[in-house]
Design a protein around this nucleic acid. Sequence first.
DNA 1: GGCATTGGTAAGTCATAACTTACGGTAAGT
DNA 2: ACTTACCGTAAGTTATGACTTACCAATGCC
Lengths: 112, 112
Amino acid sequence: MTDQEALAQAFTALADPTRREIFERVAARPRAVGELADGLPVSRPAVSQHLKVLRDAGLVSARADGTRRIYELDPQGLAGLRDYLDGFWNRSLRAFARAAEQHSHTRQENDR
Amino acid sequence: MTDQEALAQAFTALADPTRREIFERVAARPRAVGELADGLPVSRPAVSQHLKVLRDAGLVSARADGTRRIYELDPQGLAGLRDYLDGFWNRSLRAFARAAEQHSHTRQENDR
DNA sequence: GGCATTGGTAAGTCATAACTTACGGTAAGT
DNA sequence: ACTTACCGTAAGTTATGACTTACCAATGCC
């Protein structure tokens, strides 16, 4: 899989509001599918399908626990997105950064 | 516009390969619409429509120059995406930090 | 004024993606 | 062994979004 494809999958995965909500729930703490589906306005199979998209994008990973599947956040897909966005930020925006610093953006540069 | 909506627009904007290509061209250097469309496998109106999506997402901005419109990168949308992803990244570090150093700056997010 | 250049918008087509219900397969409880 | 719980996949429907051509407005040039 090329970088472009991986990137497209990751952006596509997080573009859908329901899927982003699922991703955020997984990120908050690892959970089984049924628990993830509880409270969401879609059916459990829909959640399974969303989880597959998130898995293929490298954003979450699953481990078996009996008949349950525990999903947790996968740093890999996240890192790809961060690197991609940071490229634009560092290469093209350093000049603008000061002017745009009304938005106090605190971040560690060495934390990856 | 809520943060959620803004985020959805930004992710959606970058999910499409053609649109991401246009975004990258704009980021490389400010350009007019016709110049952006040159070499792309889609029509110029399609490029205009893509640029509208990117503008609404706060990822690019336009200024008039005669009959031409010069598009350039807009840091605002990029910052929104970075901030969002950094929240999870820091969380991921907490969960997966075995070989990682300790980080003083952590962002608290509410569990849902 | 008349014409060319530039680019945004409208309308319609077509592919895809997000959902539903139905079903099957596997592990655990009794 | 039978039943229950959990979850992934199949098939079908529907909404959305990415594209096309046609058209129109604004600016610059002669």
